[in-house]
């Protein structure tokens, strides 16, 4: 049953990804990406990572998709004919990516057999009460420095976006 759920979710996710890179209009692409984010959140739920699933829906499926939609509205794109949609190197890119996929599969999948123990997280989950509590405990004790650094990165990103989005003064525009 769990395997069937996973199979459906994986199929939907890959389908959404393929439709996203081949869609005719950019708005459709954005909505396929939204579907892909939602299926990813469901897969995270299957993995019993509830906190990450909620963060995925809030941040990726919420904020990032909305900002993409705003950009699509603002730049007012027309529908692109097929020869304008793809580069000339499409064939080679697909070929090289397929080879890369086979290589990654051959290298990564045999590694997966060594990781089958769930014991440590399960026992700690019982002790702390849930996935979110456990994540919070690690985030605010062992990983407090990376947490602060990420907060700084987000602050820099906010300031950078404000500076970039500001209209240029007319003196510079005239040059």
């Amino acid at each position: 049953m769990t395997l069937l759920t996973f199979a459906i979710l994986a199929f939907l996710s890959v389908l959404a990804a393929i439709m996203m890179i081949t869609a005719r209009k950019i708005v459709f692409s954005v909505f396929w990406l939204l579907l892909s984010f939602f299926t990813t959140a469901c897969i995270l739920l299957l993995l019993k990572a509830e906190f990450l699933a909620v963060v995925q829906i809030l941040v990726n499926a919420g904020a990032v998709i909305i900002s993409f939609l705003f950009v699509v509205i603002l730049i007012n794109l027309r529908e692109e004919p097929k020869n304008e949609r793809y580069h000339q190197q499409t064939k080679w890119a697909v070929l090289v990516s397929a080879i890369l996929f086979v290589l990654v599969g051959l290298l990564l999948v045999p590694q997966g057999r060594y990781y089958t123990s769930e014991g440590m997280i399960a026992s700690e989950l019982v002790k702390w009460g849930g996935n979110s509590e456990l994540v919070a405990k690690y985030l605010f004790s062992d990983y407090i420095l990376p947490f602060e650094v990420v907060a700084l990165v987000l602050l820099v990103a906010i300031i950078g976006v404000v500076v970039l989005a500001k209209k240029m003064p007319p003196k510079q525009k005239a040059e």
């Binding site: 990804a17 996203m20 993409f68 949609r85 190197q89 990516s97 999948v109 997966g112």
Partner: peptide
Amino acid sequence: IPLPLYLILSAALFIIGLVGVLTRRNIVI
């Protein structure tokens, strides 16, 4: 669910994203 299935799924998504980056001409995509 065994771990290799997740790895195959994530590798497939990654490669599809890579194909998109290499082939599309639109920066939003």
